[in-house]
Design a protein around this nucleic acid. Sequence first.
DNA 1: GCAACTATAACCTGTCGTGC
DNA 2: GCACGACAGGTTATAGTTGC
Length: 244
Amino acid sequence: MRKPKSLYHGHRFPALDISHAVRWYFRFQLSLRDIEELLFERGVTVSYETIRRWCNKFGKGFAHRVKAARRKAGGTWHLDEMFVSLRGEQYLLWRAVDAHGAELDILLQKRRDKAAAKRFFKRVLRSNPVPHKIVTDQLRSYPAAKAELPELVNVKHVFVKAAARINNRAENSHQPTRERERRMRGFRDPARTQAFLSCFGPIRQHFALKRHLLRARLYRKQLAVCFAAWREFTNVTQNPSHAF
DNA sequence: GCAACTATAACCTGTCGTGC
DNA sequence: GCACGACAGGTTATAGTTGC
């Protein structure tokens, strides 16, 4: 029987280096050049361009595995949109998070009308069970789109004012995106932005434990669990703390 | 306040090296 | 010889700094 090809088949650099680079890029507010420098410090000489290609190639798959392994969404969806400027053009980044603040899905669209809302609902429904409640701002596109989707017709819909604390989960989840947007000197291409943010959200959140709510011992224990899971997602057997 | 300059970001393309 | 991967160099865009 033929042995299945490794995820990293054909790559010259070890899987661990690739896994590190991809994780750092999507986990922290680091540029590709920052990661190039960090790897060089650890004896790995690779260009930022190669790291960019690794991120493009492996990011999507890693993010998909992270999302698939996550606990199923709670019964409530919090939905919100944020404006993103791409080369001077205004786009809307639609985002859904669950009751725990975990990102369910994002979608970059030009409009915020009924069709756009419907498109986003369908997208979230493809990878998440039907919620028992959705929480949104007062944008009228939400109820109009919801009324046309049989899966959501009977779902309770709670409207909140944009500044209301109840929808802070969705509002707060925009913050890392804003920070990253600034670090990257803005987003440019819609397709590339969608691809980047689809990886950025799940991977970042996988390691973003609520440190301020945890005692050090528990925090380290949970972090170790996150790393063990990451090694599984990336098919890397070596413990990162033993690397370099 | 404004323009010029510099630094830095992602992205693109052509070329070269390597392994099959 | 071919396909793949990495690299170098260039492009475009934006933010920050400096000097007037």
